[in-house]
Amino acid sequence: MSALELCNLSRQFDGLTAVDDVSFSVNPGKITGLIGPNGAGKTTVVNLISGFLLPTRGCIHLYGEDISRIEPAHVARKGIARTFQNIRLLKEASVLDNVVSGFHRHERSSWWSSLFGTPAARQETSEFREQAAELLSRFNMLQFANLPAGNLSYGHQRRVEMMRALATQPRLLLLDEPVAGMNDREADALGEIFKRLAKDGLAILLIEHNMRFVMSLCEELHVLDAGRLIASGEPYAVRAQAAVVAAYLGG
């Protein structure tokens, strides 16, 4: 079963169609790319999937379950994690606390036990901190654990944001232009991490307009232009299509 399936998804803003009849699917264990020039509607697609926008028409299925009309927080609890185009970290909180915040979905202790500090609630907090530290060490970031997240470099902030997304243990990861503003070396290092995650069975939807980066990572590519899908398939086959060249080069 595909992890994510969009069927005839459309969204209009005051008569303007931002996403028009888009259908594609994302499979577990693979990185699927969604590319397109600026203003093609890529971020609108992300916002539709994560529930921040309601579709005008069409549906969204997550592992066969229709999620197109449920609240965004609920969508997240169903197992969709995302990163943001402009990194959104809690800048004053420490790196560790930022990652811990991703564990919210796995909280089991009730409000009462949180208010009165039962041993179970305290235990849960210290478990989350340990798990967050493990994640940090897996990505070689443990030495930054106690720094305020806002003090880190851009590339490191990106990693923290991704670790927070991973902490939710998602079934689908949405990456909204994760390498924007990075040089090739930094981007490739991040790309390696994405590959590893996909290999472990995660479904990843990568939204980008950096063609080089996408070509090196994705097994399947979809091209969006002016809200419509103009090409889908194997990366090299897609790149060869005339319409894609036209959309990118404005021909």
Partner: peptide, 14 residues
């Protein structure tokens, strides 16, 4: 603390 600092992030974390 998450809600105070960034509601959108809070929602995206469920």
């Amino acid at each position: 603390d998450i809600i105070r600092q960034d509601e959108t992030v809070a929602v995206s974390l469920g």
